[in-house]
Design a binder for these strands. Sequence first.
DNA 1: GCGGTTTAGTTGAGTGTTCAACTAAGCGCG
DNA 2: CGCGCTTAGTTGAACACTCAACTAAACCGC
Lengths: 152, 152
Amino acid sequence: MTRWLDDQEQATWRAFLGATRALMDALDRELQHEAGMPHAYYEILVRLSEAPEHNMRMSELADACGSSRSRLSHAVARLEESGWVRRQDCPTDRRGQLAVLTDEGMRRLTEAAPGHVEGVRGHLFDQLTPSQVGELRRISDAIIGGLKEQRT
Amino acid sequence: MTRWLDDQEQATWRAFLGATRALMDALDRELQHEAGMPHAYYEILVRLSEAPEHNMRMSELADACGSSRSRLSHAVARLEESGWVRRQDCPTDRRGQLAVLTDEGMRRLTEAAPGHVEGVRGHLFDQLTPSQVGELRRISDAIIGGLKEQRT
DNA sequence: GCGGTTTAGTTGAGTGTTCAACTAAGCGCG
DNA sequence: CGCGCTTAGTTGAACACTCAACTAAACCGC
């Protein structure tokens, strides 16, 4: 009874897998090389840099990064060792922790950003037509929508 | 001089990141749960199952899976422990190794496949229109093309 | 305000990935 | 032949992620 993938779907799935893996690997390698951090850590710094006061609750940050709590907890622990983030007790909820971007972290992020944006542009947007960019946006939203719905 | 991302690109990039991460996480979790292996290992078994004699040279397999040699080497070592793959000296090149899918490995793959295909269908193809599937294919190919070109 | 449930976050063990260093065999060429 | 260069694959250490178990505080209902 399995609804197998037809040839078109099969080919699409393999191309998609290959493309996303190669893309993420390339960006990860570049960021590791130029900024000394994996892409996931870079994203944490980005989110914090956009937050008021450069700080966020751990769970909020985990949601923003699409990360599990455990993953974020480990990641912030490492970022704290590097001195790019520090933890602080949440004033309004004694269970809570705030992750705070340090000045050094902000500096590192500012240094890393241009190279990373060039990577994203060069590997992704430069390869696509404007209409493909629009379609990619809609496709991504559809996937996210489907996963969200199924979780309920 | 950095060509920053405009709003449209920024939003697309974040949606794409979120979608691929959530999708891969979901498939990985499902496969780990139902078949006791991560998606990367499943893919190795798939490729071997499609090869003549159910075997492939290590490097060939690494290329097919878009994996580094090191990663594949570790992965095959684990798959060998599980008894799903075995290694064999290459008859024509004494440096080489063949990875061979065992009968047990084939059995495991056959059991895992229907559930995984349902996942791919449910999380991805059911969410897209046929024309979006076509576009996703072209977008993926464009990304792969760009990365390949830059590597030279 | 007390006991059970939910929410916030951490921890450690186990597993997977990366990177650089390594062995061994094929290849090219004087 | 013999010497260097490349290719095939492995290894171990460092790092990242997952899962399940845990602590602690907030919330809820009576």
